Computed example of a mutant assay.
Amino acid sequence: MSPAESEPSGIHCRLDELLAQRGMTLTRLSEMVGVSLVNLSVLKNDRARAIRFSTLVAICEALDCEVGDLLDRRAA
C-alpha cells in the first residue's frame, strides 16, 4: 500500500446514518442499485478511494437524498 492510499481522504460517507434513517439494510441497497455488498461496505466504512458518478446517482436515488447528504468533508 502506498502512503497516499493509507492517508484519509477527508471525505466521510454517511451511508450508515442514511440507511438507519430509512430502515434499510446494506443488502437491500445493494440489490436496488446493483452494486456489490463488498463495494458498498468499502464506501460505508470510508475506505473507498473513488466512486463512479453513476453509482453515486443510483445510491442517491435509492435513498432519496442529495450527494451532500451522503458525503461530507471532514477536516484532516
Rank of each mutant, 00 (worst) to 15 (best):
R52N: 05
S36R: 05
G23F: 06
V38K: 05
S41I: 06
R22K: 08
A58L: 09
A58M: 09
V57Q: 15
T27E: 13
L40I: 04
T25M: 11
S36V: 08
R22F: 03
L19Y: 04
E17R: 03
R52D: 07
N39R: 12
S54M: 09
I59L: 01
V42N: 06
G23M: 09
V42C: 06
L18S: 04
D46S: 07
V38I: 02
N45P: 02
S41A: 02
N39Q: 15
E17P: 00
R22P: 00
R47M: 08
K44H: 05
C13S: 02
L26E: 03
V35K: 01
S36F: 04
D46M: 04
T27D: 09
R49V: 12
D46K: 07
L37Q: 12
I51A: 13
V42E: 11
T27Y: 07
S36N: 05
L40P: 01
L40E: 01
E17C: 00
R49M: 09
A48L: 11
R22M: 04
S36K: 07
T25H: 10
L29S: 11
L19P: 03
R47W: 02
L15R: 08
D46P: 02
H12N: 13
F53N: 14
D16F: 04
S36C: 00
R49P: 00
S54H: 10
G23C: 01
M32R: 15
L37N: 12
E17M: 02
K44L: 02
R47C: 01
R22C: 02
Q21K: 07
G23N: 06
K44S: 13
I59G: 01
Q21A: 05
V35R: 03
V42H: 09
A48V: 11
L19F: 02
M32P: 07
Q21W: 00
V33Q: 06
